[in-house]
Design a protein around this nucleic acid. Structure first.
Lengths: 126, 126
DNA sequence: AATAAATATTCACTTGAGGGAATATTCACT
DNA sequence: AGTGAATATTCCCTCAAGTGAATATTTATT
């Protein structure tokens, strides 16, 4: 078992969710995490943003229950924490068909594909 | 024909839409307008918020192409400007099933029902 | 043209969010 | 215990957004 569930109540408050989604770095992070868990350094590499910036936005999302974290050796793995059907899940679905088609997000995914293969800090899944 | 279409390009930028949705007054306004056009004074009455505050948020939403305005005598009528299928429309649909079930929004609708009947400044619809 | 109602805008203020640089923390390894 | 890598946090700064009070604008009415 790779991810122990440290349950933080999901925001069931739309306003919070929209605020989470209303910032580019956070949207980019969610776009990435939609494709699977990632450690901070990978997010950082893919986004090309400074470490504190990434770390802070991850903390923000975690604080609002949108993502969960798991310590794995020296790395912190983040992943989406939404149950299917949750507010966030609904919105991410909307995003999938729309926003995430925008070039910023596609480019991120392209870079993710390159980083992801040589992943050394990914937890054994399954 | 009641609403002449003064076309302002709809925001096809998710970030902008989420920012529009990420503020309580604006969410409340959209919840109201989802049930039909309204003049400023009605919005104001229903929300119980000061006139400049309401007017500014309406201006914000209009500036971002989310709503349209129409002058009708002394009143300004606002209504949603989204085409079906637009980003906003999708999100409003999400909202309909979820956020707008929260008490704030339900209470607003209750107050809207009372105000709406005695409407003197509504444009002749249909 | 003067007035009043409805709405928009300006101004001044405050607050919170985001950013970078630096520092602290946590963990593995020796 | 000491070191280095990965991550988190703090400090400080700046800027944008929201707010209320006051004022301007628009329109109908007289």
């Amino acid at each position: 078992m790779s991810h122990q569930k440290i349950k933080i109540p999901l925001v069931e408050d739309y306003l919070s969710v929209y605020k989470c989604l209303g910032e580019l770095t956070r949207l980019r992070i969610l776009n990435l995490l939609k494709h699977g868990p990632l450690c901070v350094c990978h997010v950082q590499d893919v986004l090309g943003e400074p470490q504190p910036k990434v770390s802070k936005q991850l903390a923000y999302l975690k604080r609002h229950g949108v993502i969960e974290s798991l310590r794995h050796a020296n790395w912190t793995i983040y992943r989406l924490s939404g149950e299917p059907g949750s507010i966030l899940a609904q919105n991410l679905k909307c995003l999938e068909d729309g926003a995430f088609q925008e070039s910023v997000f596609l480019e991120d995914l392209e870079r993710l594909r390159q980083v992801d293969t040589s992943a050394a800090c990914l937890p054994g899944e399954g």
